[in-house]
Design a protein around this nucleic acid. Structure first.
Lengths: 348, 348
DNA sequence: CTGTTAGCGCCTTCAC
DNA sequence: GTGAAGGCGCTAACAG
């Protein structure tokens, strides 16, 4: 193959063979000294190999190791959108835990498209990752779900571990989040604060996370005998702009019977805040707002946002731990917690 | 090796050999049909191989390919903090571009620790990535800098490509960002709005990005004959909490001669906003605030934040493109742009 | 155009 | 405890 890049000065990384030769031992001994199973090698040789390796700046070729061992040390993480604080926090947790385990994490973005997610999972197989973590974008009645399940089943049958984040739809290991209970508790808190007229920015209803939170919220209100006007439930994208648009719709329809709006996630709530303001209204005063997730920025908006805390980084860490556990083990849901802030002052 | 996980039902992924056999052709033909250089294979065989591959759900083992080819298709991205919107936006850009190029991206977090960054780069070598992208955490007078440069030099000599984001310190390909000019323009804008008493939350002064922005800002003020009181330059962490703390210091010292505070990045500015509010002051009214980066959330805080826009996602995309270009090519800086919002109303 | 045959870098029985 | 040799899955000359 004609290489137009000058090869002169091109260095080839030292191979294990180089190290072995430099240390005057066999390939096998070198291998055993550097990685090999529990010390079954003479200390003299051992240090000689280590020295040689250091001298040559040797770094084992992970691909070669993977081929020889028949398995990798990589965890593949697929999220909907990396720049969304929800996912980037989870990713931070996964990366932190992977670092502890000396594993490598690869990343892909589904862009909230189930078909894309499926394609990604398919191409992921080429990596032969030890773990696949899927965060977000599971939907109700998703036509690709069967195919995805099949793909993941095959993958597990081949020895891989899959972990889902949020809700156990597909029968794999899962980091479940107390979405419904959290939303229910939030509803209770809001009722306790005196709110009676509710609206919900439900985002994309097909998203299971969104649906769970909505249903939990409805259940919470029901306990106080409060029902939610169907006209006050608005769908829009599960994003900041979706929250903005949803709130705009509410405003244009009139906020008469509404004194608090629950957005099923914080980025939407924050968008809603801005929509209110842009409409000349005063969030927290003219109408209250609550979100879900407790992403970092909600403490810096004004009014600070009432929400339900989800320990996102922990969720990421836990995802990998669950994956690595010998048996399915602790799959107790991650607890959520209502955090009341300024966006929902007590009524009257 | 004793495997305590039951192997029964364990499926082994189809290998290229399986495909070849199923298609009744040789290994080479199968290889050529599925990946091989430009079509030099009989259409009949070709389709037969493709069929067999589909039937067996074949997926090439990337590690094996990497070993055989002597190179991978992975790009290693190391950032300071994945959950920081600055870095997660850049990461989103890198991942998006990598997807186009059918490359895999691996991710690591340096946690703003140069030593850790160096360690990461060292262990990265094992992956034999085609590209290494380093975002953030370069510091002035960093004792590990020489070692890092050496490591990266070795890596490039071995055929890898390194791309730095922000400032070209080490002589590698770089996505430079117009930090100083942007800050200078911001200063000019603020002076134009009538501001005269300036303070700066400089973050970690050793961070080159922070230093550049500060110096650009000072230069911009100098053009109007304005100097900045050294007591009004406060150091703190380059984070949201750093911004909060920095502003708190300013407040406790007294804001008498200060009518606008420039935080060298948006997360700090947003923290400063909250600190002001917590001190019972009214941001934008009692004292103005400006940041740098234009991260998404600054449009949702109140007052909306005046800042200098950096097209972060584009920066990430560009980083990979620059890496992949045959020659160093277009290294013109990414332009920044002042965006005036509500946090810096015209004076009087 | 196709098949045979060396490798790629490393691990791991298997004898010594 | 050590080394020789075969093999992991795939690619790339090299002959036919």
């Amino acid at each position: 193959m004609p290489e137009n890049i000058p090869d002169e000065g091109r260095t080839t990384p030292a191979t294990l063979e180089d190290v072995a030769r430099a240390a005057g031992v066999s390939l096998a001994t070198a291998s055993r000294s550097l990685n090999g199973s529990n010390r079954t090698v003479n200390e003299t040789y051992r240090t000689r190999v280590l020295d040689a390796a250091a001298r040559l700046n040797y770094s084992p070729n992970l691909s070669a190791q993977a081929v020889a061992r028949g398995s990798t040390m990589t965890v593949a993480l697929v999220v909907a959108d990396i720049s969304d604080p929800y996912f980037s926090s989870i990713a931070a947790g996964v990366v932190a835990e992977a670092d502890r385990e000396r594993m490598i994490v690869t990343m892909a973005a589904s862009e909230r498209d189930p078909q894309r997610e499926l394609d990604i999972v398919r191409t992921l197989r080429g990596q032969r990752p030890k773990v696949i973590i899927l965060a977000g974008s599971r939907r109700e009645g998703d036509p690709t779900e069967a195919a995805l399940r099949r793909e993941l089943d095959d993958y597990e049958r081949a020895g891989g571990r899959v972990v889902l984040i949020s809700r156990n739809e597909l029968g794999f290991r899962t980091v479940t989040i107390d979405n419904a209970p959290g939303a229910e508790a939030l509803a209770t808190s809001l009722v306790g604060l005196g709110y009676r007229g509710f609206a919900v920015l439900i985002g994309n209803r097909e998203l299971k996370t969104a649906a769970d939170r909505y249903e939990g919220f409805v259940a919470g209100l029901a306990q106080s005998g409060i029902r939610i006007d169907p006209d006050h439930v608005v769908r829009s994208a599960f994003t900041r702009d979706g929250g903005y648009d949803g709130m705009r719709q509410l405003v244009s329809r009139g906020l008469d019977d509404i004194d608090v709006v629950f957005a099923v996630n914080d980025v939407m709530a924050v968008g809603a805040l801005s929509a209110l303001r842009d409409a000349g209204l005063n969030p927290g005063v003219d109408v209250a707002i609550a979100g879900f997730d407790d992403i970092p920025t909600v403490q810096d908006v004004w009014p600070t946002l009432t929400t339900v805390r989800v320990p996102l980084v922990d969720v990421g860490r836990k995802a990998l731990r669950i994956a690595l556990a010998d048996r399915p083990g602790d799959e107790s849901p991650v607890a959520t917690e209502v955090v009341v802030r300024d966006s929902t002052p007590p009524v009257r």
